[in-house]
Write a protein that binds this DNA or RNA. Structure first.
Lengths: 164, 164
DNA sequence: TATTGTTATACTCTATAACTATA
DNA sequence: TATAGTTATAGAGTATAACAATA
């Protein structure tokens, strides 16, 4: 049923699908709603450690031990520069990250401290069971396919000519 | 490559994948980044009409002409009740929505005005070309599959037992 | 002169609790 | 007594422009 609606949308691009059908086939709305449903199950783990979700994303982005600069963190974590400045200050004051020298002194590079790595490990461990529940309910193979498609969609979309 | 990493994650659930691998396989991050990349291309259409993205979602949710109550709009549009109150007031002041009487007087039901429907049609028309570009670059069949998977993920996740 | 990041500022959304009206 | 929504309030993120430091 849904697929047929989508087909109609695709094969007749001049037709504007309306109402619930249109809403269900909206890409950005579907991404938002899927994120809301899944995020709700993980948020408590960040709450328990007094981390905002953007702060938690920054820790995760740094979790392989590689130092990253502010610009890269903004992109990977989907955070605007002014927000990231505040977030890095807060994480630094908690001793979770520390500055790393960089040849280009304009770049503000940071890496996890041992304490930050420990907090990351603790949070990942705590949230694993929830992730397994979702994987199991949705299907592990399908989840893997979904992640591949989401990453590919992002790369493909970012590669389109600018529409400014 | 990505798929192999995912397989390793799935077949050995006790192993905590670390660093970039972990970050790329995070479901909520992948959803956020995919949304950011695609949304960026649509945002200008809402901006042109001085609509915030949540306001635009409300118009879209109402676009089949069916009146909806505030609670339903909160769920479908992923907006908290206090935000929705302000949004409905703003849309009402612009003459885009109007109240609809309801047997249960506690329920605040609204529907699009003709002006609201006209604005919806205008915005959908304006954004269609961008949507087609993304569909074409990503693949129409794959896009349809992705939308089905996103909606299914949401339904499956909402159906899991509460983890409060 | 261009780039990186911070600061300043205003606005919106998030989130929780308390309150009102209705059932 | 329970439910739907609004109001109140504090906090965090969004967004833009202006600024500082470095390349």
């Amino acid at each position: 049923m849904k697929t047929e609606s989508a087909q109609a949308f695709q094969t007749d691009p001049e037709a504007i699908p309306s109402g619930k059908e249109y809403y269900e086939r909206s890409l950005t709305v579907a991404l938002l709603r899927a994120r809301e449903s899944t995020m709700r199950r993980f948020k408590k783990y960040a709450d328990q450690e007094d981390l905002s979700l953007p702060q938690w994303r920054v820790l995760r982005a740094l979790a392989d031990g590689e130092a990253l600069d502010a610009g890269t963190l903004c992109q990977r974590c989907v955070i605007l520069p002014p927000s990231l400045t505040r977030i890095l200050r807060a994480l630094s004051e908690r001793g979770l990250i520390m500055p790393v020298e960089c040849a280009d002194a304009r770049r503000h590079m940071v890496t996890l401290t041992d304490s930050g790595q420990a907090l990351f490990d603790k949070l990942v461990g705590a949230s694993q069971e929830t992730r397994r529940e979702i994987d199991h309910a949705f299907g592990e193979e399908k989840m893997s396919l979904l992640l591949d498609m989401l990453n590919e969609l992002r790369i493909v979309t970012d590669g389109l000519p600018s529409n400014d």
